[in-house]
Amino acid sequence: MNKMILNNGVVIPSIGLGTYPLFGSQLSQIVLTAYDCGYRLFDTADNYYNEEDLGNSFSNLYHKRGNIREKLFIVTKISDELYRQNEITPGMNKGIYFWKNSPYMRSNHACHDIVTKKIETSLRFLKTDYIDLLLMHRPYPDFFEEIWYEMEQAYKAGKVRAIGLCNSYERHLDKLLKSGTVVPMVNQIETSPLNTKKVLIDYYTSKKVQMMVYSPLQTLKCKKEIEFLQYLEKISCKYGKNIGQVLLRYHIQRNLIPIPKSTNVNRLQSNIAVFDFCMTDTEIEELSSFNIDYQYLPESKGCPGF
C-alpha cells in the first residue's frame, strides 16, 4: 500500500474507500472486505448519516482483526444538513447550518457551538478518540473562516491529526493563508480527465496541500463521451487492467488520492490493484486532453456563492 505524507508529517494512504450512501450490515461487510483487500482509509461525513454505522463497522473489524485502530485512517467532514432518504430530493442541501439566513446561526457563538458539537458527535459515533483527517465539506461562504478557526482549535487540541477543505478553490486557500494559523493539509475535490482542474491542482500542490478525489470513477458513466471511453478501453487493453483501474491510476499518477466506493467484492479488489502498472506521461496527457470542464455535481448549486 503506497502512502503519501501530508504537510504536517502525517502519513496518509494513497487510496481510500468512499462510504456514501452505505449503511448498516452492508457497510459493515464492505469495511471488513475492504480492510482485507488492503484499504486503510475510510471516508465519511457527518451528513452521510452513516458515521454511527461506520463506527459499528470498525468495532466489528477490531473484533475480527484485532485492535488495529492505528492502522486505519478515518476521514470525516463538517457539513450542512442534507435531506434524508425518506424526504423529497434526498441528498440535497437543507441550508440549515453555516448560512447567515438560518435561524440556527443567529447567535454570536453559533459556529463554535455547532462545529464543536459536530466533532464530538463524530468522535462518539466513529468510536474513536481522534479523527485522522477532518475536512470542511464545502467552503461555506458565510462562515468559511469561522469554521476553519474552530477546526484549527480541534487540531491544536489533538482531537484531529490533520484538517483540510473540500470543493475549494485558490481564493479559499488564499483567505486561509492570510487569516488562519494552520495551512490546510488536504483539499478533496471532484476531478477527472473530463474536468482536469489543472490550475487549481497545481496551485494547491505548490502550497503543499494534498489533493484527494471523490467520485473518482464517475466519468465512466458519461456515455456521450465516446472518444474518451474508447481511449480508456485502449489503455486498459494495453496494460491488462479494467477501465476503472486506468482511471484510478490516472488520479494516482497526478499525485491525487482517489476514494472510490464499491459494494462489489471484485471491484473492491480491482480498485486497489492499481500500484503494479504505470502509464506513460503521454498517456496521462492524452487523457487530460479530454477536458471539457464537466461537472456532474455543479459545485455552486451545492454551495451557492462559495
Binding site: N93, K94, G95, K301, C303, P304
Partner: peptide, 9 residues
C-alpha cells in the same frame, strides 16, 4: 435554488 438563497423559505 439552494434553500439558503430562497427568500422567505
Amino acid at each position: 435554488l439552494h434553500p439558503a438563497t430562497i427568500s422567505n423559505f
